[in-house]
Each structure stands twice: as C-alpha cells, then as structure tokens.
C-alpha cells in the first residue's frame, strides 16, 4: 500500500510528538535516579544532573534485596499471567460463542467486581484472606490478582472472539476437531492479539499492585517488587534516588514482555480469511 508522502509525514509528526510527551516525564525519573542526596525536585530542566551518579543503582543491587524481590515478582506475575490467560480465554469463548442461561447477567456481574474502590474493600478482603489462612502466602496474592484481572480479560477475550467468524470453527469441526479442538487449533491462534493484551494486563496487575500485597505479605524475603520499592518511601524522608532507580528497573521487564509479545499483537491473521 502506497500512500502520499504528506500522510506519512503526518504520521511521523503525531508519533514523534507523543513519543516526546511519553518520554519526558520518564526521563525526569531517570534524572531523579541519577541525583545524589535524595532530591525529588530539581530547579532546572537538565535530564542528566551535573553531579550525576549511579550510586542508587549500585546500592539497589548491593545493599537491597532487589534481586529477591524481582524474582518473587516474576514468579507471582508469571503465574497470574498464565492463570489469567487460561481462564479468560476459555470464559471469554463461552460468553462469545454460546447462548446459555444467565450469560448476560454473569457478564455484567463480573464487571461489578471492579466497581468498588479497592481501598474500601481492603478490610473485608483482609479478613477473608486471614480466615482462609492465606496471610503471608503468594497463593493469596495470586488468587486476588487473578480475580482482579479477570473481568477485563474475560470481556476483552470475548470482544476478540466476536470478531472471528464462527464458520472457521465449524470448518474445523467438520475437519474432525472437537469443540475444544477447534478452539485450540483455530480460534486461539486467531485471537493472539487478544491473548497478548490479556497477558500484558494480567502481568501488569500483578506486577504493580502493592496495597493488598502490603496487607498480606509479612516477610521481607517474600516481598514483591512494588512492596520492596514502597519501603524506600517514608513520609518526609523518602529515598528518592533508590525509588526512582528501582522504578526504572521495574519497567524494564514490562518493556521486555511487551517487546516479546508485540509481534503477535500486531501480526494480523484474520485478514482475508473470510468474506462476509
């Protein structure tokens, strides 16, 4: 597809403006991480401070259990992502393809779980987790994270399945697949962009949550990254250098996950499969 040069230029202009807008505040965070002496604010616009130092980064790895937290977070987020994707891809399929009693009501009902402010649910949630004996376990966290991420993921997957023509599955069933087989061999590969979004979202839910984690986890050795980072923050005496450095490092795995998945996100497959 060829398009006029002017349009291409407009594309680049829009993208460049938003890249600048996206990056500038983050560069500020980088700047904070390079400042000595825990200075959150700066009085000039310089990104690399005159007295820059990587001490915060060094300190993260040498004096703080950063790698432990990283590993914990990777395990928790990884498991939440897998469960989230597995459960959302199946439930979304049911909501998209089948007409069963209570379908609409259930779809609405799972949305309601998102409608309470999380801070207000902390108290009953903690009581629940305590009664189930899940305090200070990752399992408690993972159940909560998965349940938090699922409503969006289910709806998202349902939306994606809705764009896949049912005749493809019918063809697969005639070709000898069971319903589950058609789901696996035909529908899932075509819903990859949806799976990617679901995976990213589940991952981010677990990766960045700290309010519930702070309530549930009692052992520093089992902290997830956001909890660890949170410990650099104190009223009026936060360690901003460490905080910023850790924030930058925390975003790297997210970017890496996105990089790994974005190929599937933008690799459209349904193009030209059917004509309606």
């Amino acid at each position: 597809m060829k398009e006029p040069r002017s349009i291409t230029l407009v594309r680049h202009a829009v993208l460049l403006v938003f890249v600048a807008v996206s990056l500038y505040p983050v560069l500020n965070v980088v700047s904070i991480s390079l400042r000595p002496g825990n200075r959150l604010r700066s009085t000039d616009l310089a990104i690399i401070p005159a007295d820059w130092t990587v001490a915060s980064y060094v300190q993260l790895f040498t004096e703080q259990p950063f790698l432990t937290w990283l590993w914990n977070s990777l395990v928790v987020s990884g498991l939440v992502t897998l469960t989230g994707v597995a459960l959302a891809s199946t439930a979304g399929y049911a909501f998209s393809r089948f007409r069963f009693i209570g379908r609409k009501a259930t779809m609405l009902a799972i949305l309601t779980t998102q409608m309470f402010p999380a801070t207000m649910l902390l108290l009953p949630l903690y009581i629940l987790i305590a009664r189930l004996g899940l305090v200070n376990t990752w399992l408690g966290l993972m159940i909560f994270y998965t349940a938090t991420a699922l409503p969006f993921c289910v709806w998202q997957m349902k939306g994606f399945y809705d764009t896949i023509p049912p005749s493809l599955e019918e063809a697969a069933r005639i070709d000898g697949c069971s319903r589950a087989g058609a789901f696996r061999h035909v529908v899932l590969p075509l819903a990859t962009p949806g799976l990617v979004i679901t995976a990213l979202f589940s991952f981010m839910t677990a990766w960045s949550e700290y309010i519930v984690a702070a309530q549930v986890m009692q052992d520093e050795a089992m902290f997830t990254l956001p909890l660890g980072i949170k410990s650099f923050q104190a009223s009026l005496s936060s360690q901003w250098g460490l905080y910023a450095a850790a924030s930058i490092l925390v975003s790297i795995p997210v970017v890496a996950v996105f990089l790994a998945l974005s190929r599937y996100l933008v690799n459209g497959l349904t193009l030209g499969s059917v004509k309606e």
């Binding site: 459960l87 959302a88 199946t90 439930a91 399929y93 049911a94 909501f95 089948f98 069963f100 259930t106 009902a109 799972i110 779980t113 949630l125 629940l128 159940i143 909560f144 998965t146 349940a147 938090t148 699922l150 409503p151 289910v154």
Partner: peptide
C-alpha cells in the same frame, strides 16, 4: 468454559 473464571471472581 465459563465456570472457573466466574467462580474465582465471585469467590473473591
């Protein structure tokens, strides 16, 4: 297909 996700969400 729908039950696992729905049950988990509601249980919480």
């Amino acid at each position: 297909f729908a039950a696992p996700a729905v049950v988990l969400v509601f249980a919480v």
